[in-house]
Structure formats: structure tokens, C-alpha cells
Design a protein around this nucleic acid. Sequence first.
DNA 1: TGGTTGCGCAACCTATTGGTTTTTCACTTG
DNA 2: CAAGTGAAAAACCAATAGGTTGCGCAACCA
Lengths: 113, 113
Amino acid sequence: MHDDPLSLVFFALADPTRRALLERLSTGEANVGELAEPFHMSTQAISKHIAVLEAAGLVTRGRDAQRRPSLIQFAPLRAVDDWLDRYRLLWLERLGNLDRQLSKNQGRGSNDV
Amino acid sequence: MHDDPLSLVFFALADPTRRALLERLSTGEANVGELAEPFHMSTQAISKHIAVLEAAGLVTRGRDAQRRPSLIQFAPLRAVDDWLDRYRLLWLERLGNLDRQLSKNQGRGSNDV
DNA sequence: TGGTTGCGCAACCTATTGGTTTTTCACTTG
DNA sequence: CAAGTGAAAAACCAATAGGTTGCGCAACCA
């Protein structure tokens, strides 16, 4: 694995289980046991997944007696959003061109978006 | 690797080399030889990276004589954008709360964003 | 004090990555 | 047709991902 921040975030998100964990955490903090319940996977496996999310900065872990609740963090998601920015312009531009194409010569073949 | 579309996209993006390739391709199509040049890596290695991008739908490959130019595709990036939507609301909300906190009681401790 | 709960850590196993080199293929050109 | 070129395919290898089980530890409970 590459360890630059953005790669860590993308890598963390490249797994349905971890995205589901994140979604669950977006409704409020939870400890490992609670997070593991919907999945048929050991709590240790979930714990590892959380560690990956933590490495990416997507969650932080607190302490409440012997529980270790995970809390979602949005900053890395904003980083993804920022990274997307450079392409947003391009895909809008391409949509614009497409629109122009469509309105210019209506009723032709060969379209590839 | 999990093979659901979104995981493939995130996985493809979780590598600085592949993100650089994508950025290069955002300026126009290019064949493997051209793409490989800035990196000190074999063209075969680059070819594999492109295959990963292709699996995610981020590029398509055309044909021009014996060249096989890669062309960027924006749809998967829009999918990422859509996926982010569900969190955008939350992080804005949190920013809103933060703003309210800040304006309500200016000059206190304990802030965690 | 002794049992239970929540969780992290380490060891271990298998599948996959990410690079290499070698081979094969498709196409152009002399 | 033969030779040269751009690139994919295949075989191979070391490192890592992602799961498992087993163990230990700290905090609660009886």
C-alpha cells in the first residue's frame, strides 16, 4: 500500500464492508461489537477494518470504560471532494460539448459518452 | 478485491501512479508508451495499471493502427461524487453546528471537528 | 475474589497486488 | 514475405490484504 493520505482514504473506501461501517457511523458513534453485529464476521475482522478507516483518518476512537467507540470524521471525505474538483470542470465541459453536439445536429448516429 | 463497481473505482484511485495517469489522460488520450515515459517503470507495469483503471471504467482503450490509445471516462468519477452526496449533507450540518457553537459561546475550549 | 465483557495484539494461512522478464500478437513497412 | 514496432499475455516472485484463532488485559459485576 502507498501511504500518502489520499491513497489511504481511497483504499479504505474500496471495500463494501468498510463503506457500510462508515454509513453506520454516520448515524452516530458505535463500539466494535455493535458495528460487527450486522455482518457475519468476527469482531476482530471488523476491528481490523476500523483500523484501516482510522489510518485513513475517517474515524477516530474514543474511550468509554472498556468500550472504544468509533466516531466518523469528515475531513478525508472533503479531501476526496476537493480532489474531484479538477475533474468536475472537465466533465461539465464535456457535457456542455455534448449538449452543443446534440442541439447542433439532431438525429444523427455515433454518440459515445 | 471486491468487484462491485464503486469498490473497483475506489481501488483504482487508491494509487498515486494511477491517479497521475488519470490526470495525464485528462489532457487528452495517449498510448502506453507515452504514458509510461514520465515514470521509471516498465511499460508493462503501466499497462497493468491501465487495465485496473479500465476495469473500473475510468478509461477505455481505442485502436489506432498498432497503438492503443487510452481515453478517460468521467462516469465513474460522477459515481464517486454521487456517493459523497450522502455525507455532504452531514458534514455541512456539522459545520453549521460548529458555526452556531462558535457564535453562541465565543472563547471557550473543547472543539472537535 | 472470581467471572464476564469488550477489545486489542500476535501468529498464522491463503488470495491478491504489483512489479519483473519472456513470449506472443497485430500491424506497418522495406 | 521478412523485419521492425507497440502493446498485450503469461509466467514468475516478493509483499501485502484480509480473514481466522488464541491470548491477554482492563473494567465492570456478583
